[in-house]
Design a protein around this nucleic acid. Structure first.
Length: 209
DNA sequence: GCGACGATCATCT
DNA sequence: GATGATCGTCGCG
């Protein structure tokens, strides 16, 4: 933890959500919830690009009470409930009025692992703690109540570790779980670190970024 | 290790 | 009333 490594609004307000989704790999995600500090290295993300992306909750300019956070300025989180059970963590990006977001799908735990095990009730395989977006949010103590929280506050934030992936280490692949038509069904807007055991889904269609 | 399946409810129509 | 940016379990072999 160090204040000078914390990513600020200017980072998240970059207009290119696809670039940012890949760039977040290797960054450290932190939460300080119920007095418990947790952190992990982001290893898998997905980009959702504004009104033209049929996979996005903001497709066609849709704006409801659920997804209103997507239209705020970059640098806050968008949380929503999926399948009535799982809370999903998204990073809102771009300028105010745009509706881009990045789903954080998996992380490699580095701090607060005991708390993560307890929250997840998983005690025999740490690789599973933050594998998949629903698991990750639960391990970090995040839920829909945190929708709209700022990444420049002290509850949830992201830091640049200084780590950079090697050439070819970042793979791009189709997004997971979307029942939509082409071209967005197959577009490679999911990014993950190759050979990382904490990634939730590996794809045959993956290609180096 | 992998495919099938049911759980479960907020949100939208 | 239908749907879903998922997950854990079960059967398999």
């Amino acid at each position: 933890m160090s204040e000078d490594r914390k990513l600020g609004d200017s980072y998240f307000q970059n207009p290119d959500v696809v670039h940012l989704a890949a760039d977040l790999l290797g960054k450290n995600l932190y939460t300080l919830i119920d007095g418990e500090l947790c952190s992990g290295i982001i290893v898998e993300t997905e980009a959702y690009r504004g009104p033209e992306d049929t996979g996005s909750h903001a497709y066609g300019g849709r704006c409801t009470t659920r997804n209103a956070s997507m239209y705020k300025a970059g640098g806050i989180i968008y949380m929503y409930v999926c399948y009535g059970i799982h809370d999903m963590l998204n990073i809102v990006t771009g300028e105010e009025g745009s509706s881009h977001a990045i789903l954080i799908r998996a992380a490699q735990p580095s701090h607060g692992i005991d708390i993560m095990r307890e929250r997840r009730q998983v005690f025999n395989d740490d690789r599973r703690l933050c594998k998949g977006p629903g698991s990750l949010a639960r391990a970090f103590g995040l839920n829909k109540q945190h929708d709209g929280e700022s990444l420049s506050a002290t509850l949830v934030w992201i830091e640049d570790s200084g780590w950079k992936p090697q050439a070819g280490e970042v793979l791009s692949a189709p997004r997971v779980g979307l029942n939509i038509g082409e071209p967005f069904r197959s577009i490679r807007w999911r990014f993950y670190l190759s050979n990382n055991p904490y990634v939730s889904v590996k794809s045959k269609d993956a290609v180096p970024l």
